[in-house]
Write a protein that binds this DNA or RNA. Structure first.
Lengths: 218, 218
DNA sequence: CGAGAAATTATTCAAGTGTATAACAAGGTG
DNA sequence: CACCTTGTTATACACTTGAATAATTTCTCG
C-alpha cells in the first residue's frame, strides 16, 4: 500500500500543466464535465492540488480561460509582427493566422464557444472576455490604419474602428464556422476567403491582399 | 401534508414549456448548472416529468437546442419573406433581422455559444448544428443569387456559395460580438454596419442595400 | 547528511446529481 | 356520478461532486 510517487514541480510549471489539463477537459467534457477529479487525473496529480494552487475549481477555470485567450491573440499578433515593415503584409499575416493552425482548431473553437457562453452571466468570465476583445480590436485597428492610408482611403479613427469591428466579426465568424463545418467545405478555402473578403470589406483594390507579391499601388 | 395541486397540459404545451424552461436555465447556469430539478422548478413542475416527456435529461436538452436553432432561422427567414417581390429588400431584411431583436439577444447568443461548444464532441449536438447550418446557408445563398443577378454581377453556384459562406461568417461574428460587447459600442451601430459590410462583401454598388428607397440600379 | 518547510497524496464529508418506482389526483368517458 | 386512464407528484437510491483535513513524501539548505 505504497503511496503514489511524485515529483515536485516549479510553481509556474504546475500551474501551467493544470491549466492545460483543464482546457483539454473542458473541450472534451464541457464546463460541467470538467470535474476536479478528471482534470487532475489528466494532469497526472491528485485532486488536492487544485486547492493548493488555485484555491478553488472556479479560480482554476478562470485562469485557464485567460490563458487560452492570451494564446489566441498572441499567436496572431506575433505572426503579424514577424513580417516587419510592410503594413499590407502584416495585415495579411494577421488574417491568415486566424484561418490556419494552430489557431484554426476545432478544440480551440469549442473551448472559446464554451467560455463565451458564460460571459453574460459570470462576472469573472466577462472581465476576461472584455479585456481580450479590447486587445484584439485595438490590434486590428492598428493594422488597418496604415493599410488604408497607403491606398489613399479615409483612415480617421472612427473609420478604422468601424472597419475593425466588421473585420473582427468576419474573422470570428469564419474562424468558428470554418472549424466546425469542415465537412461542408474544405478548410483550405478559408485563407483565400478571408483575404478576398477582407479586401472588399476595407475597400482595397482587388488583389492587393491576396497576391503574394509586394503591395502594388494603383 | 397535501400534495401540490396541478393542471394537466396537452403534450405539445408541456413539452414546449419544458424546453423553454431548459433554455432559460442553460443560459443562466450553463449546461452543467441546468439540472433537472432547476429546470422543472422553472417550469413549475416536478422532476419526474422529464422522464415522462423526454425519457432523459440529455434528450430534453437536445430537443431544446433544436428548438432554439429553429427559432433563429425561422425568425430571419420569415422577415425576409415578408417583403415579397423585391430581392434586394429581402436580403436587407434578412440581414437586419439578425442585428435586431428578437434574434439579437444576449441570452440567445449565450445559448448558441454554449451549444456550439459541445458540437465537436457530442454527436447529437453535431447533427442538430449541421442541419441548422446547412439550412441557414442555403437560405442565404438563395437570397444572394437574384441580387447579384440584378446588378449584373457573376452569380454562378460557386460564386454564390463563396459569398454565402463569407456573409454567414460576418453575420455570426457580428451577431455574437455585437450582443456581448454592447459596452464597447452601441448596438444601434450593428444594423447599418451589416448593410454596409454586406454591400461591400458582395461587391454591390454603394448604398444599394443601405438606402431605404427601392433599388436604384447603376 | 539530516532537519524543516512545503508540495503532494490519501481520506473523509455533506450536498447535489439523474433516474427509477410507487402513490396520487385530474379529467375525459361511459 | 363513478370509473379508469395517465399526467403528475413524492420518495428513495446509488453515485458524483467540490472541498476540507490529515498523513506522508520530496527537496532544499545548512
Amino acid at each position: 500500500m505504497s503511496r503514489k510517487t511524485f515529483q515536485r514541480l516549479s510553481l509556474d510549471a504546475r500551474r501551467k500543466s493544470l491549466m492545460e489539463a483543464t482546457l483539454r477537459c473542458v473541450a472534451r467534457y464541457g464546463l460541467s464535465g470538467a470535474t476536479v477529479r478528471r482534470i487532475t487525473e489528466e494532469a497526472g496529480v491528485t485532486a488536492g492540488l487544485v486547492r493548493h494552487y488555485f484555491g478553488s475549481k472556479d479560480e482554476l477555470i478562470g485562469n485557464a480561460y485567460a490563458y487560452l485567450a492570451g494564446q489566441l491573440t498572441a499567436e496572431a499578433g506575433s505572426r503579424a509582427k514577424q513580417s516587419e515593415g510592410d503594413p499590407v503584409d502584416q495585415l495579411r499575416q494577421f488574417l491568415l493566422a486566424n484561418m490556419t493552425t494552430p489557431n484554426l482548431s476545432e478544440e480551440k473553437v469549442s473551448l472559446w464557444a464554451t467560455f463565451i457562453g458564460r460571459v453574460r452571466y459570470e462576472a469573472a468570465f466577462a472581465d476576461i472576455h472584455r479585456e481580450g476583445y479590447r486587445e484584439f480590436l485595438a490590434l486590428l485597428e492598428a493594422l488597418i490604419e496604415p493599410v488604408l492610408a497607403l491606398h489613399g482611403l479615409p483612415h480617421g479613427a472612427s473609420a478604422c474602428r468601424r472597419h475593425a469591428i466588421a473585420l473582427n466579426g468576419l474573422i470570428d465568424g469564419l474562424w468558428m464556422e470554418g472549424s466546425l463545418n469542415s465537412g461542408l467545405y474544405g478548410r483550405a478555402l478559408l485563407p483565400e476567403l478571408i483575404l478576398e473578403a477582407g479586401e472588399r470589406l476595407l475597400g482595397l483594390p482587388a488583389g492587393s491582399l491576396q497576391d503574394q507579391k509586394k503591395t502594388q499601388d494603383s
